[in-house]
Simulated scan of single mutants.
Amino acid sequence: MPDRAETARQVIADNLYLSLGTADAAGTPWVTPVFFSPDGYTDYYWVSSPDTQHSRNLTERAEVGIAIFDTHAVVGAAEAVYFKATARQVPDEKLPSALAIYNNRLPEAKHFELAELLAPAGFRLYRATVVEQSVLVRGGDPELGKGADSRLIVTL
């Protein structure tokens, strides 16, 4: 049996973007890709304008859905990791340590400075904290297949 938690860790390490699913106060969904930096396997950081749809949605609802997957995988060979999480803007007092984590994955020439993430600047740092992690199980999986793709909860 494949080590599904190890597969999930590899998917996270190999990919630079996550698909972030948010919803507004009325429940209208919105999904957007964002560059991310992980902090272990429980916290994920990204930078966005507070004026974007997903950032505005987070002021209404902290609950998010996240998927990380290889968009270049051939049909039938994809691996994916899914998260249920809560997300919010990082408070100003926690920005220095959180920014160090975020910048760690960026090329040095692309690093953000603290001043770029504080009002009145146009960007903010956000963090999603995982509530549940799961992986894709293909429908034809010889051990866990159910005929249709499904998810399996894992601990990373």
Rank of each mutant, 00 (worst) to 15 (best):
P29T: 09
Y41V: 00
W30E: 11
T7S: 04
R151M: 11
D3Q: 07
S97H: 04
E79C: 07
K146E: 15
E143R: 01
R61N: 14
G21V: 01
P29M: 09
A23I: 02
A5P: 08
T71P: 00
V74P: 01
G140S: 12
Y17N: 11
E108N: 01
I153A: 09
S48V: 07
L99C: 05
A100M: 07
L125G: 00
D3I: 13
E79K: 10
D39H: 06
P96M: 06
T129A: 09
Q89M: 13
E116M: 10
P50D: 13
L125Y: 04
T22L: 12
I153L: 01
V11Q: 05
I12N: 03
R9L: 14
L136T: 09
L156H: 04
A85Y: 09
A85H: 02
A5H: 04
M1S: 08
V64L: 05
L58R: 02
S49M: 06
S55G: 11
A78L: 14
R56P: 10
I12R: 03
P2S: 05
L156G: 12
E93Y: 05
A23R: 05
S150A: 15
E132W: 02
A26M: 07
L99Q: 02
A85F: 08
R9Q: 15
P107R: 04
G27T: 09
H54I: 03
H111L: 09
G40Y: 09
E132M: 03
V11F: 03
A80Q: 07
R124P: 03
L18M: 15
Y82Q: 06
V90C: 07
F83A: 02
W30R: 08
V11E: 12
D14P: 10
R56S: 09
